[in-house]
Simulated scan of single mutants.
Amino acid sequence: MTDRIAEPRPYRPLIVGIVAAGLTGMGQVLNGQAGRGLMMAFTALSLAWVSYNLTTPEHSFVGRYAGGFMIHAIAFMDALREAKFRWQIWQRDHG
């Protein structure tokens, strides 16, 4: 018998990227980092609220919610990088 605990197959990076592009923090949840995903989602909402209240109606939609969009982009890149890393490790160990 082996002492190794069978770890589940991680989600493919493409799937994580598609989900993370649509929902802030859900890419982290798929990667098994639920706390990190929740932190990203709340930070995005908080900064969107702050940037909305610091701008005027003359600004564009993206300009009014710029703080939230910035965190969304960071969360997307973070989730995709972690998914690629986890996928490569899993392939190395099970390939």
Rank of each mutant, 00 (worst) to 15 (best):
G67Q: 06
I15S: 11
N31W: 01
T55S: 15
F61I: 13
G63C: 03
Q28G: 06
G37N: 08
L30M: 13
M77P: 00
N31A: 04
F76H: 10
T43L: 15
N31V: 02
M1Q: 08
M39A: 15
A48Q: 09
D78H: 04
V16K: 06
E7P: 01
F69P: 12
V16I: 03
A21H: 11
I74T: 08
P13K: 05
V50R: 09
R86F: 03
Y65S: 02
M70G: 05
A75P: 02
I15T: 15
L38R: 09
A79C: 03
G68Y: 06
A34C: 12
W87V: 12
F61D: 11
L38F: 15
G25T: 10
I18T: 08
A48S: 15
V19E: 08
M26F: 15
T24S: 04
A6L: 14
A41P: 01
R4T: 13
D3E: 14
F61K: 12
N31K: 02
T55N: 13
F61V: 14
L54N: 01
I18G: 02
D78L: 09
G63E: 07
P10D: 08
R86Y: 01
T56P: 00
Q88H: 04
K84W: 00
D93W: 00
T43E: 04
A6M: 12
M26I: 09
P10H: 05
L23Y: 11
Y65W: 05
I5W: 09
K84Q: 01
T55P: 08
A73H: 00
I74G: 03
M1K: 12
R36F: 03
N31I: 01
Q91I: 01
M26Q: 14
R64K: 13
Y52C: 11
V29N: 01
G63D: 01
G35N: 05
I15L: 14
T56F: 04
M70S: 10
T55Q: 13
D93Y: 00
P10L: 05
L45P: 03
R12I: 04
R12K: 12
R12T: 08
S60V: 07
M70L: 15
A79N: 02
R12Y: 05
H59C: 04
N31R: 02
A34Q: 14
D3T: 13
W49Q: 14
H94L: 02
L14V: 07
A21Q: 08
